[in-house]
Nucleic acid binder design. Structure first.
Length: 263
DNA sequence: AAGAAGATCTCCGAATACAA
DNA sequence: TTGTATTCGGAGATCTTCTT
């Protein structure tokens, strides 16, 4: 019996990144053995797509593929988006962080396009952030320029919030002088006084920036992420603005320009 | 004369420094 | 710890100058 040369392919399932190599004589054969190996629990019909762009592979097309083409096995009708898969891989930060930083650095060296440089630069600095560190002794760079009495990031952020709120309050108080009408003026003063007492009782809401606080008291996540809440007349931010001032000195400084309401 | 480019002014929020 | 004055930098508005 004449045996034709088998086709060599690499194939993975849609759900798992592990790739397997097979040597087969037809697409039909590939679907059979790959299904058994990769998706033994799937009972429905399966199809094969190109990993690269999701093109569905037919029997005829299969024979024209070069050896070692990367393929994906998935249920009939389901489409494959390699781009989404690549992004997902990049986002598996914990597993890939070091490799990613190195790769981004290398690419950045040769990259000329400003847009690509920006994306790579952002990625690199985001990956380099160390929000998990909390103590001054562990992240001295973060504390550069901050009085020595602050030993933890959270304590400083809390203080930072208090002074900010006091600043706002002061501004509101200063506005009194611009009022002409005496009755309005006294009423306004009363409101400001009441506001002052309430804020004082609430310790100037320092807990807003303190990630050690209970969920209801803080505006950030337990890791220190703040999300833009959208403009004052909207319920959320359509741009998904976010920042973690606990991550790096730069983010901490940048955060001081944040108003959390889009301005 | 019109539009582009540059310079200047003004306002605001936050940082900083200092006092109480 | 809290309050206050000063400084700094960014951003927008406005005015001025330059170019065509």
């Amino acid at each position: 019996m004449l045996t034709t040369k088998p086709k060599l392919v690499k194939i993975r399932s849609a759900n798992r990144p592990q790739t397997y190599g097979f040597a087969v004589h037809s697409l039909k054969e590939l679907v059979e053995i790959a299904s058994r190996k990769l998706e033994p629990q799937e009972s429905g019909n399966m199809q094969v797509c190109l990993y690269e762009d999701g093109t569905v592979v037919t029997e005829e097309y299969f024979h024209s593929l070069p050896d070692n083409t990367k393929l994906v096995l998935l249920p009939d009708g389901q489409s494959w988006n390699a781009f989404a898969e690549d992004i997902k891989r990049v986002l598996e930060l914990d597993r890939n962080a070091e490799l990613l930083i190195k790769t981004a650095q290398d690419l950045l060296m040769d990259e000329r396009s400003p847009r690509a440089r920006r994306i790579l630069g952002d990625m690199q600095s985001t990956l380099n952030e160390t929000p998990e560190l909390e103590l001054r002794e562990d992240d001295q760079e973060w504390f550069e320029g901050i009085p020595v009495r602050f030993k933890t990031k959270s304590a400083y952020m809390k203080h930072n919030c208090e002074t900010r709120i006091r600043g706002y309050l002061r501004e509101v108080g200063d506005y009194t002088q611009t009022l002409e009408n005496t009755r309005t003026k006294t009423e306004y003063k009363k409101v400001v006084e009441s506001l002052r007492e309430k804020l004082k009782a609430a310790r100037y809401n320092g807990s807003y920036f303190d990630r050690r606080e209970k969920d209801v008291n803080r505006l950030c996540t337990e890791r220190g992420w703040f999300f833009c809440q959208g403009a004052y007349d909207e319920n959320n931010c359509s741009f998904f603005h976010s920042i973690n001032p606990y991550g790096s000195r730069e983010s901490r400084i940048l955060f001081s320009t944040w108003n959390l309401d889009h301005l």
